[in-house]
Every structure is written in C-alpha cells, then in structure tokens.
Simulated scan of single mutants.
Amino acid sequence: MSSSMRTILIIGGTSGIGEAFAKRWHSAGKKLVLTGRREARLKELEAELPGTRTYAFDITDLKAVPGHVKALFEKNPDIDTVWINSGKGNLYSIKDPSSFPDEAVIDEINTNITGPMIIARHTIPKLLAKSTPTNFLITSSGLGYAPNGTFPTYPPGKAFIHHYMAGIRGALKDTNVNVIEIVPPMVRTDFHQQYSEVSKGIPCMSLEDFVNDTFKQLDGNKAEDLKEVAAGSAQERVDFWRAGPGKYMEKMKIPG
C-alpha cells in the first residue's frame, strides 16, 4: 500500500496512535499534513518532523468542517491519502444520568461519527477527482465489533464507523479510492491510561507493537486488497464479522 501514499492528511495526529503513525510515515519519507485541536502541539510536531505541515481545527464544529476541508486541499493539493484518526471515549453509568451530561454524549458522537461522516462527504469527491490511486482511512476499534456497557456510547459509535466504511467501500468499488478501516485493540496510550482502573486484567497491546503489526499489513499488501486492518485481539473480532455478516454480503453480492 505504501507506494500509493505520498502525501497523507492525518486528522487527529497530535498524540497516541495518530502521532505514532505520523512519525512512522515521516521516517519513510512521506509528506504529512497533521490536524488537531491543539495548535501548540501541532507547532511542536512541525519542529520535530521537518517538512510536516499542520492545520488546527475541531471536527465537532460541524458547520465549519466543509470550509476546513476546502482550505486543507487548497493549501495542500497533493494530498492523496486521508486518515481520520480523531476519536473520544467516555466511561459512564447508564444507570445514573448524573454520571455524565447529555452534552458530553453529543460531543462524543460528533467526534466519532458525525464529524468523520461530514469530512468523508467533502474529501472523497476530491480524491475521486485525482487521476492516481488514493486512500481513505478511518480508525475504528475492536470494541466496535462487540458491545461493552462500560463505555455505552463508544462501541456503538465505532460499530457505526465499521458499517459506514463497508458501505462506502462498496459504493466506491472500481474507483481510484481505496477505503481502509484501521481496527486497534486496546492499545497502551494516554486514552488507555485514562481508564486504567476499569481495564485491569484486560490484555493491552503496546503502541509500538500495534504500529509494527499494522504496518506489516499496510506495507505488505496492495491498497485495493485491504478492507479492515486489525491487530492483536481486534483481529479475531474482525475475522468473526467477516465469517458471518461478511459472508452474507458476499452471498447477496453486496460489495463491501
């Protein structure tokens, strides 16, 4: 896949998985455009990763998203790969509405679902307009393949992303846009540390191992052959889905 990626826009690239992938791609000589909410952190990454371009915006400011996408492509017309990695997960009790405000639920859904869908609507036509292969990626989660009541909103949001990616992959079949879902298991990042108390005893993959395992698949396969790229315990969940609903889709000749 790497040969079809030259300039990569990472939406949500200032920490964790996004930052780790940015550093890996930078070391491979890829051009990078990084976005995030924290302008100061973006400036630090510009200095750390010479040649990297940055752009600050908040994907939950839904009305502003189309304008940001337009500006990003005007400033960086060489973008051929878009990866939406931004995400948010919150622990709360469905038994107790006072444990979490409605506004936070809305913010989580806008971060994980609505914002990425609007970005997709405005980036994919730009990728389709190019004469060379392009790539569209979103990070989901192994939690999207099995419910988890500890995080009432996060797993269904990631399940939504999985179905969305399978659907648009079918819609973009035989075009120049490759649609790839990145599916991490629980990975040792700041996100994981935030909820370390409730995740005790649950296998957790190191960030380094996750990046290495994911890049083995990205580097070892043609982009058009990739669908879900999973690692660790998330791979079993993806395989189970492909052996069930995925097989049904094949039987019904539904691409995705």
Rank of each mutant, 00 (worst) to 15 (best):
N221D: 02
E236L: 10
A71E: 15
H163R: 12
K30M: 09
V69N: 05
G256Y: 10
L72D: 05
V183G: 03
N76Y: 10
T114D: 01
V198T: 13
A146M: 11
A129R: 00
I17Y: 03
Q194K: 13
Y248P: 00
T7Q: 09
L9A: 13
N135Y: 01
L207W: 08
A223I: 06
V33W: 00
T139M: 14
G246P: 08
L62A: 06
L49Q: 06
D209Y: 03
T81G: 09
K23I: 04
D58K: 09
N112L: 07
I119T: 04
A223C: 04
G246R: 10
T60W: 00
A166L: 09
V82D: 04
S140F: 11
L72R: 05
E197N: 14
G36R: 03
W83I: 15
M117Q: 08
G256D: 02
S140H: 11
K63V: 11
E208F: 01
D213Q: 13
A64S: 15
V105Q: 08
S131Q: 15
I8F: 10
R6K: 14
K251D: 08
E250D: 12
I94P: 00
N148S: 12
P155S: 15
R242K: 11
A231L: 05
W25P: 00
I10M: 15
M165K: 00
E19F: 00
Y55G: 00
N212A: 14
F151H: 12
K31W: 03
N76F: 06
T132D: 05
F21C: 09
E19P: 04
E39C: 01
D213I: 10
K88E: 11
A146C: 02
K88G: 04
T14Q: 05
F240W: 11
K30W: 03
P133H: 01
N176V: 09
G144F: 07
A231F: 08
N76L: 10
A20K: 04
K253N: 15
H26R: 02
R169F: 08
F73Y: 13
L128E: 02
N148E: 11
K43P: 02
T134Q: 01
K251F: 12
S98I: 10
A28E: 13
S196A: 15
D225C: 06
T35A: 05
G29W: 04
V183N: 01
E181R: 01
S27A: 14
R6T: 13
F210D: 07
S98N: 09
A104H: 07
E208H: 12
V65T: 12
I109K: 00
K173T: 13
D78Y: 09
G87L: 10
Q235T: 15
D213R: 02
H68R: 10
I202Y: 11
E208T: 14
M205F: 00
N221P: 04
L34G: 05
F136L: 02
T54H: 09
A231S: 14
A47K: 14
L137I: 15
S3Q: 12
N176R: 05
P77Q: 09
F57A: 05
S206I: 08
N178F: 06
L137G: 08
S99L: 08
A146L: 14
T81D: 06
N110C: 06
K126M: 13
P155I: 15
N90V: 15
G149K: 05
N110P: 03
A129Y: 01
V33T: 07
R41M: 07
G256I: 03
Y164W: 09
K43W: 03
T134H: 04
S27V: 00
L9P: 04
D239R: 09
I182P: 00
F21N: 06
P155C: 14
